[in-house]
């Protein structure tokens, strides 16, 4: 029974030695009964221990991919392996390794928070005592312990999403699938959920995240695949993806307000606010040069930040490529 109750610790032990990918998808096709082709032959490997983002617009095929992994969606063709085991022939073992956080809230709203998590533990073969201990552990970590005796319908939207995460973790899976886990969650809760997920990932759990919050992917994930109309258009590390940016935008907080944007030869500048200057930097340009020029114009910069839509620009440009070649 070791593999049932100690999946998490076993995983941590073997992780550094394992060369088997957490998931390996080959030529995956899915055509729904209504004829819609959601996946058109995607292939994807995610390394064990990775924090991986699957990015795409609505209807791109992200949730279908998660659905196939979790067996809620039946693939039309192709092969899917989880930790080297085929989901068709070893479905019990692969399901034990998976924790699924769906996009839609899908628990019984009339059940108590604690019961929802403990019951899920029972479905994974955890004895009641252990399931209760795990439920307490994850509800506490996710800030839901004081709501344990409340019916789930009384939770706020953000709390419901955190309950989904606690439920998915009760059997301590080696691989956590998160389908837009912070959709509709306020900024504060989103940040704390990110921190929690990063901690889980540091503990050894492989995480695959679908999102269309690009900032989320950029903050959390080491590797990324972009999916569009059922086809993977990019699959690389976050760093190398961001290196592909030809332009990067910086926001400079100015010490004194300006009435119009300064003219810096070769740079695209605009005032977002009288005290905030946006500067677009080409990959060959140097930020020091910008500061020197501003200094020469007697414009003092108080602070600076990276504009957070870098990934968004890249995402849009990648999705435009097929249209341009068509």
């Amino acid at each position: 029974m070791f593999f049932l109750y100690n999946a998490g610790s076993q995983c941590q032990f073997c992780r550094s030695f394992s060369m088997t990918p957490a998931i390996s998808i080959k030529d995956l096709y899915k055509t729904y009964d209504n004829g819609f082709e959601a996946l058109k032959g995607i292939s994807l490997d995610v390394a064990e221990g990775d924090f991986f983002a699957l990015l795409g617009a609505n209807g791109a095929g992200k949730s279908t991919t998660i659905g196939v992994l979790s067996t809620l969606v039946r693939k039309t063709s192709g092969s899917v392996q989880v930790f080297g085991k085929n989901v068709d022939t070893n479905s019990y073992e692969t399901k034990l390794d998976l924790g699924v956080v769906p996009q839609e809230v899908n628990f019984n709203h009339f059940e108590k928070v604690f019961d929802i998590v403990v019951t899920q533990g029972g479905y994974y073969g955890l004895p009641v005592k252990l399931a209760k201990q795990r439920a307490e552990k994850y509800l506490k970590q996710l800030g839901l312990w004081d709501k344990q005796n409340q019916q789930a319908r009384n939770l706020s939207g953000g709390m419901k999403r955190r309950l989904l995460i606690a439920r998915a973790l009760v059997h301590e899976p080696r691989l956590l699938l998160l389908d837009e886990p912070t959709a509709g969650v306020d900024i504060e809760l989103r940040r704390s959920t990110w921190e929690f997920l990063q901690e889980i990932n540091r503990g050894g759990t492989t995480i695959i995240l679908t999102t269309h919050y690009l900032e989320e992917a950029e903050t959390l994930c080491r590797n990324i695949a972009m999916i569009d109309a059922g086809v993977i258009v990019e699959n690389t590390s976050m760093k190398s993806l961001l290196r592909k940016l030809h332009q990067e935008y910086f926001l400079l907080d100015l010490r004194e307000e300006l009435t119009q944007a300064p003219v810096l030869d070769g740079y695209n500048c605009q005032l977002i606010d009288p005290a905030i200057l946006e500067v677009a930097l080409e990959s060959h340009q140097d930020l020091n040069d910008v500061f020197n020029r501003l200094q020469a114009l007697n414009i003092q910069v108080k602070s600076m930040r990276n504009k957070s839509n870098r990934l968004e620009q890249l995402f849009v440009s990648l999705l435009k490529k097929p249209e341009q070649t068509a």
Binding site: L96, V100, P102, N106, H109, Y123
Partner: peptide, 18 residues
């Protein structure tokens, strides 16, 4: 049916319960 309707049946379907 109510578990199917509110999709909480997915809790069971993603688990390894035969």
């Amino acid at each position: 049916f109510s578990q199917k309707y509110q999709r909480s049946i997915e809790e069971l379907l993603v688990s390894p319960v035969p």
